[in-house]
Design a protein around this nucleic acid. Sequence first.
DNA 1: CTATCTGCAAACCGTTTGCAGCGTT
DNA 2: AACGCTGCAAACGGTTTGCAGATAG
Lengths: 147, 147
Amino acid sequence: MSKNPTSSLCEAWLDRLSANGYRLTQPLQAIVDILASSDHALSPVDIFDQGRRASPGMGLVTVYRALEKLEELGLVQRVHHPGGCHMYLRAAHGHEHLLLCTACGRAEYFAGDDLSGLMETIASRSGFEIREHWLQLFGLCQQCRGD
Amino acid sequence: MSKNPTSSLCEAWLDRLSANGYRLTQPLQAIVDILASSDHALSPVDIFDQGRRASPGMGLVTVYRALEKLEELGLVQRVHHPGGCHMYLRAAHGHEHLLLCTACGRAEYFAGDDLSGLMETIASRSGFEIREHWLQLFGLCQQCRGD
DNA sequence: CTATCTGCAAACCGTTTGCAGCGTT
DNA sequence: AACGCTGCAAACGGTTTGCAGATAG
């Protein structure tokens, strides 16, 4: 795994936070570092556990407050899956969809955007004004298939 | 709205519950009646409030235990949407997808199943073994568009 | 130096569990 | 008559809030 793309993502997030008036404290930076570089959806406690390695005294409350900020700025998003909706992941770039490993939580985005036709059909058939859509695939990633 | 289709759905659910060894108590029947006939995704408290009208002494705990049974038998499913994942709806018949009103919670299923090609592409590109998929549309239903 | 952020503790809320009595079968 | 189900109350776990001290700007 190359380090450049994720560390520049990390810097970009810190810039955004700073530009929005948030202070770049050590625990916040640790949390940003974890979320910007992880390819797994993480729960607040996951982030807390990993964060304590880089920033030992960190509290769980700080994780929740950081997630609030990151979600507000659209850098991170909550992930929904059959088992619950309490995990977080770096947000999609534009209209990507989500592919999740149900065993280990590994997450990948993919493009495959061809739903406009379906959405128009459903809109006219149902009378709904469609505003948003979710397409998510669940399965086992390469590593977890072997088990 | 015609009463036949929903009341027969209600009877079918009671039959299934009975066939699986569950007793058909009055509060359970009230809950089944609500869920089988509702076209909105409902939270446990919603069901509790509506249930108390038909079955005044009913407790919230009973709602949770009924949802457990109904979910186990595949009659009801949890609904995920941007605001949370704590609402319940009658389960889909086969491979239907979900259309939800973000204002009032009205829910409709639709067929539109043409994702096998996409799923194969993504599977081979990512190395994932895809097991399940979600497609959900969110918007405003006819009634809520007027506001 | 000041205002914000942090960590702790306690409050909070939705959900689950233990238990004695009721109600279905 | 027997056992499962109910309602109550208490436990539980995750999330939020209040506050005094630490810290980035």
